[in-house]
C-alpha cells in the first residue's frame, strides 16, 4: 500500500485541507476533542455524583477491608506514568522523531494495559473472593458502574493508541499526524484526570 491518501487511525479523523486555514488557528480536530472532553466532564460528573449520593444516603458499609489501597495507589501511579509517556510521545511527534514516539506510545499502551489488568484483578478478587457483585448491593452497583465505565474508557484509549502504534510500522506517518497523536493524547490524559478524581473520591474517601 503506497497510496498517499490513507489517513491514519483516529476517531474523528477528518482531514484538514492545508489550504483551509481555520479562523482560530486551532485545528478542527482539536476543537472537537476539547468539546468532547467538556461533554465527558458531565458524563463522569453524573456518574460520580450517583456514587457519592448513594454513599451519603444509604451509608455505605465499611469497605476499607475490601479495598486493596496499595494496589490502587499503584494503579494510580501507573496511569500517571502513562500520561507522562503520552506527553513525551506527542513531543516526539512534534520533534519528528518517530522512533521515540513509537517507544513512548508503546510505554503508554503498556502502562494502560497494566492499569486495566490491575482493575480486572481487582474486580475478579471482589467478585469471587469477597462476593461484592454489581447486583448484590447498592455499593456494588455504583462502584462497578463508575469504575467500569472508566475502565472502558481506558480500554478504548488503548485500542486507539495501539492502532496508531501498529500503523506507524506500516504507513507513512508524517509530522502532520502529530496532531492526530495529540488528539488521542488529549483523550488519554482526560482518562487520567478522571482517575485522579475517582481515586480520592471513591477509594481514599472510605478511609476518612
Amino acid at each position: 500500500m503506497s497510496q498517499a491518501h490513507t489517513e491514519p487511525l483516529g476517531k474523528a479523523s477528518e482531514h484538514v485541507h492545508p489550504e483551509e486555514q481555520t479562523n482560530t488557528g486551532i485545528p478542527n480536530k482539536k476543537v472537537a476533542m476539547w468539546a468532547f472532553l467538556a461533554s465527558d466532564c458531565m458524563f463522569f460528573g453524573t456518574l460520580i455524583s450517583t456514587h457519592l449520593i448513594y454513599r451519603k444516603t444509604t451509608g455505605y458499609p465499611d469497605v476499607t477491608h475490601i479495598f486493596d489501597i496499595e494496589l490502587t495507589t499503584g494503579s494510580t501511579f501507573i496511569l500517571l506514568m502513562s500520561s507522562l509517556f503520552m506527553a513525551l510521545a506527542v513531543s516526539a511527534m512534534h520533534k519528528g522523531n518517530l522512533n521515540n514516539a513509537r517507544w513512548s506510545l508503546g510505554a503508554v499502551i503498556l502502562f494502560g494495559s497494566l492499569f486495566l489488568g490491575a482493575q480486572v484483578y481487582e474486580f475478579h478478587h471482589f467478585v469471587h473472593d469477597l462476593g461484592l457483585t454489581i447486583n448484590g448491593s447498592i455499593f456494588g452497583t455504583t462502584f462497578y458502574t463508575l469504575t467500569g465505565t472508566h475502565g472502558i474508557h481506558v480500554l478504548f484509549g488503548i485500542i486507539w493508541l495501539s492502532s496508531w502504534l501498529i500503523y506507524s510500522f506500516f504507513g507513512t506517518m508524517k509530522r502532520e499526524h502529530a496532531l492526530d497523536i495529540e488528539v488521542a493524547g488529549l483523550y488519554w490524559h482526560f482518562v487520567d484526570i478522571v482517575w485522579i478524581i475517582i481515586f480520592p473520591f471513591v477509594y481514599l474517601i472510605e478511609y476518612v
Binding site: T24, I26, W34, L37, A38, M42, G45, T46, S49
Partner: peptide, 21 residues
C-alpha cells in the same frame, strides 16, 4: 479558547455535582 471550551463543561459539571450533593 480551548481552555474556555473545557472550562464551560468543567464548571457546569462541577456545579451540577455540587447541587446534587
Amino acid at each position: 479558547l480551548l481552555t474556555l471550551v473545557f472550562l464551560v463543561g468543567l464548571i457546569i459539571a462541577t456545579g451540577t455535582v455540587a447541587a446534587l450533593m
